[in-house]
Amino acid sequence: MIIPTTEKGAEISRRDLLKKGGAMATVTLAPGVTLMAFGGQASADGLKKGARWGLLIDAGKCPEDCSACVTACSNEHGWKNNGLDTDPQWIRKVTLREKATGRENSLPVMCQHCDEPPCVDVCPTGASMKRADGIVLVNRHICIGCRYCMMACPFKARSFVAEEVTDQRTTTPRGNGTVEACNMCVHKIDRGDGTTACVEACQATGNNAMIFGDLNDPESDIAKAVSTYASMELRADLGLGLGVRYQNV
């Protein structure tokens, strides 16, 4: 498996790490059982040179009572929210009410896939990492479960697995005692699906509140949309350069 990384200081060590850890990408658990990390075999589309994968979410098209994206993510990656504070939530619906005007709104929040991810900065082992195409991931093989990334994330995007996991998806390795978050369906991107589970589900409802694509490709739908209509980043004051943008918040 090849994971390209950018050339900046912190990423160089991560690249070296990944080179050495290439063999760790697939871990044989028992004869015939292989656990694949980071989406397994990448296709040429998944590693499009110079890509910056992102999401555009139109809060104006996101009904408060719809949680199709949340359900799809849970099914795709095998996490379950049974209402406990220890249950993981890779994506959640947040209801907003503007204090000054009383206007109400609803939108999904997940890992914002920062250009300068605080989780990657604080991770002591380099388990939190960013691919060159902007996807922020946790390498579950070297995460020691210190949870410093959860302290650092401005969006509460991360969850800690507090019990044994069952019914794991082969494309999404998870593990008790490690931290996890939205991985922008990296396995789907790497195999060339060109979309994510949440976006697929949103489109299936007909709401079309979410667009996935390459922000760096001027011909992509997402790049055209963000260049035409106003959109914003959450906590833009932090200067993190997010891969997820919102409209009509």
Binding site: G83, Q89, K93, A100, P154, K156
Partner: peptide
């Protein structure tokens, strides 16, 4: 966390 300054927020994740 103040993810949405200027808004009151609620969610299943204790926002």
């Amino acid at each position: 966390l103040d993810i949405f300054p200027g808004f009151e927020v609620s969610s299943s994740f204790n926002d």
